[in-house]
Amino acid sequence: MKKHDQDFMKRQNRLTVFEMIKNHHPISRASIAKRTGMSPTTVSRIVGELTEQGYLLNSEQVSAGLGRKSTLLGMVNASVLAVGVELDRTRMSIGVVDLQGNMVCSGKYPRVPEESAEQTLMHIGAAMEELVQQHTIDRTRIVGIGVGLPGIVDNEKGVVLFSVQLGWRNVALAEQLKELTGFEIAVDNELKVKALAEQLKGAAVGSSCTALLGFGNGVGSALILDGEIYRGVMNSAGEIGHTTVDPNGTMCECGKTGCLQTYINISSLLAEANRIRPVGTIEELFEARQAGERWAVQLIERALIYMAITINNVVCMYNPDSVILSGELIDKFPDICDEVEQLYFSRFVWEPLRASFAFRRSMLSEEGVMIGSGLLSQNRFFALA
C-alpha cells in the first residue's frame, strides 16, 4: 500500500509540474517549486525526466534583479500529439492536437443515428487513420485518443453508461476502441472536456468558477471550480437538460415528461415546427423567424426564454464568476446570445446576481470538444507515464 501511495504521488507531482509549465511557460524551476509547494529537488528531478524525454526545452537564462540567473522552461509543442474526437447524433469530428491544444488538423464525418456503437467505433478508427495519413502525421508521437460525447460517462473506466442522443447504454467504449486502434483511450462527457479546453485557452482563462452551458441537440452544463471539473458521484453533474420544468409537458426522448431540453434543443424545436409546416433543418426554422412568420417567432422566443431561465437557475445554484454559452445553436446563431442578454436577463435572471458574473460565448466554437478530448488524453498519458 505504501509503495502504491508513493507511485501515485510521483505521478501526481509529475502531472502538476507538467501542467504548471504548460499553462505558465516560460517559467523557472524555482517558480514552479514556489507555486506548487514541492521541494526544489523534486521539481528538478521531474523537469530532468521531462526534458530527457523531449517534452521540455530550456530557454535563455534571464536575470530577475540582482540574484543569480534562472533558466526558463518551455514546452516542445510538437513532441506529443493526441487525437480528439467529438461524437454527436449525426456526425463525428476528429482532430489532432499538440501539447498546447493547438489544432494540427481535423475533419468532419457523417454518422448514421441508428448505427451501433461497434459501427461508430470502426468509423472512428478508419477516419483517424485516413486523417493521419492525409496530413502525414508521425503516428509514433500520438499518445492516445480522447472521446467526448453527450451523456453520462464513467470517465475512470471509459464506459458510456447512458447517452440519449446516441442511443447507447453500458458501452465499454475505451476497451473496444483500444482494441481497434492500439491507443490508450480517455472518454468523458462532451461539455466537461469542452470546459477543459475553455479553461486552458478559451473564455474561462483566469476564472475561478465558470459555468459552461451547451445548447444544441441536447442541453447540458459543466462547472469548473478552481481549474477542476466538478463531476459529482457518477460524473453526471451538469445534466441540467433533464431537470423537470413542467410535469405535464412534452415527452422527452429520455422517457420523462417536461424536461428542460424539450423547450430548447434542436430536435424538439423541429418537431414543434413540423406541426405547422414541413421544416427540415434548424436553419430553415430561423429563416422562417427572420421572414416574420409568427409561429416561428414565438417558438424561438420561447426557446430563448428557457435559455435565460437556465442561466438564472445555474447562477442561483452555483454563483459562478462567468457563464459561457456554447453548442450548435450558439455556434450557428451567435446573435441569440445578445438577444438573451438584452431581452430576457431583466425578466428571468435574479436581480441581485445580474452583475455578479461575466456573460460570454465560447471562444473555441466547434473545435472545443476535439481540443478538450485531446488534452484529456494527454493528461491521462502524463499522469500514468
Rank of each mutant, 00 (worst) to 15 (best):
Y263W: 13
E341A: 14
V340K: 02
P320C: 00
D331W: 08
E367G: 10
R360E: 10
L329T: 00
I305F: 05
A271R: 14
R361V: 09
E301F: 11
N313Y: 05
S322P: 05
R360A: 10
A288E: 11
A355P: 01
M251Q: 14
P334H: 06
L329P: 00
V314Y: 07
V279M: 06
R360Q: 12
L285G: 03
N274C: 08
R277I: 03
N312V: 07
A271S: 15
V323S: 01
N319K: 09
Q298A: 11
V315T: 11
M251E: 12
N312W: 08
A291N: 15
L329H: 02
K332Q: 13
T310R: 02
A355S: 09
I264N: 08
L325M: 15
Q261G: 08
M363Q: 13
V315Q: 07
G292P: 08
C254F: 04
F286C: 06
A271M: 12
L285D: 02
T250S: 10
G280D: 09
F333I: 01
M251C: 10
R361H: 00
K332N: 07
P278I: 07
Q261C: 14
M307V: 12
E287A: 11
E366K: 06
R302W: 02
E366P: 02
Y318H: 11
F345N: 00
C337G: 04
F359D: 00
I282G: 13
S267P: 08
E284I: 04
F348S: 09
L285S: 09
L364S: 03
S356Q: 14
T257I: 06
L329Y: 02
P352T: 04
C259F: 09
L269T: 03
K332F: 04
I266E: 10
T281M: 04
F348M: 06
R294E: 13
A308G: 08
T310P: 03
W350F: 14
M363P: 01
L364A: 00
N274V: 09
F333L: 00
I324Q: 00
V323Y: 06
S268P: 01
N248C: 10
I282L: 12
A288V: 00
S346D: 14
V315I: 06
E272K: 14
E284M: 12
L364N: 02
A288F: 09
I282S: 10
S322G: 06
I276T: 11
A303S: 15
V314I: 15
Q342T: 04
L269C: 02
V315S: 12
D335F: 13
